[in-house]
Nucleic acid binder design. Sequence first.
DNA 1: TCTCTGACGGTTG
DNA 2: ACAACCGCCAGAG
Length: 118
Amino acid sequence: MDFYQRVAVVCKTVPAGKVATYGQIALLCGKPKNSRQVGYALKHNFSGDNLPAHRIVNHQGYLSGAGCFQDPDKQDVLLMEEGVEVSSDLRVDLKKYGWKNTLEDALCLRAYFEKTGI
DNA sequence: TCTCTGACGGTTG
DNA sequence: ACAACCGCCAGAG
C-alpha cells in the first residue's frame, strides 16, 4: 500500500469550497496517526499533478503554507475563488468550511484503494 | 542501526 | 481561548 498515493487521492476528493485537516486525510488513508506524513507528502508533492493542497489545513484551521506555492498569497486566492473566507492571519473557519467526511466517502475511498491496490 | 526532524493531533492546566 | 506537553511515524544523513 502506498500511503502517498492515498494522500493524493483523498486530497482530490475534498470538494471545492471546503477544507480538510491533516488528521482527516490520514484517517481516510487508513493511518490515523500519520498526520505528519500527510504534510510530508504534500510538501514533496508526490503523484506529480497539482493537488489542491491549499484545502489542507491543520486542526486549528491555519494554513501552514510552507512554500508549496511560490507565492504565499496564492493559497488565499485559490481559497477565495472557491468561496472560502481566509482571515488575515491565514486562518479559515472550520465550523463553516470544514469538510465533513461522510461514511459514504470513506467507504468509497476504501473501495477505490482496494480496486487500485494502493 | 541511531538520531534528528517535521505542512500534525489530542489532552491538560 | 490559549499554550505547553507528549505521542506518533516515516525520511534523511
